[in-house]
Write a protein that binds this DNA or RNA. Sequence first.
DNA 1: TATTGTTATACTCTATAACTATA
DNA 2: TATAGTTATAGAGTATAACAATA
Lengths: 144, 144
Amino acid sequence: MRQRAGAGEELSLTLERLLRLIRELSTSGALSPTASTVLARLGGSGPMRLTELARITGVTQPAMTQLVGRMERDGLVTREVTKGDRRGVLVGLSEQGAAVLAARRAERATALDDLLGRLDPDDQVAIAGALPALGRLVDSITAE
Amino acid sequence: MRQRAGAGEELSLTLERLLRLIRELSTSGALSPTASTVLARLGGSGPMRLTELARITGVTQPAMTQLVGRMERDGLVTREVTKGDRRGVLVGLSEQGAAVLAARRAERATALDDLLGRLDPDDQVAIAGALPALGRLVDSITAE
DNA sequence: TATTGTTATACTCTATAACTATA
DNA sequence: TATAGTTATAGAGTATAACAATA
């Protein structure tokens, strides 16, 4: 079996349901989807320019200005003027932001591990085996 | 291999990226996530009570009242008083709403089929083989 | 002139609280 | 009293357009 017709449809519907599920598993900090992405990117890549954050998360620059403003107010991120170019703003994780990020990851990880553990062993193997393939599926677009 | 430690963490991170990807694939109608869910549920289960829609999608009753109001204004759904109990509101798909739903599903399906087709055959098999397991993973919570 | 970011304005989406209508 | 739904109010989150500051 190389590729069933309609695999995309089934993958899409399954992911849509999984999506809502995952969201409910990580509640620390009560972050919006975009705020969650910002936190994760800052945690993974270190401090970044405001424009770069806007580009990566797919929102406009004004939207990112406001979001970073709210996140700074809530103590999740820090802002500083970039060295060399005084127009730029460098956004970084605060200590509290890093803690929230870690808490959210732990919540999802333990909840999903628990759920996976209840599944039939064959299903567990199937999902574990598909993760690298799903990762490459995402990479195939992100790289473009 | 029954279950690797950290499989939940990896699944979570992969899904988070897939999630954003899927969203960008279906743009017809420019629907919000909740509106998308409402449309999909109405398409799959037929007309439903407003309260039932609110419960299923995980938003409050007032939020659903307003969302349905906007969707009715945009010609996506219809409203009618329920038979027998004149307090109730039955929400159904309009012809246009059904068309938008079909268009969005087709967009995602073809886009994902295309992406899947570019993957290594082994990866395609791995993903196709994991779909039923992922479906059961979701069912294991939804049923509770 | 071009780039970086902010401010102004308007709309969607959501929640909580208070309300109306029906049962 | 209880249930179904709406209205009022406030805030997050987003976009486009106009602006200020720096390069």
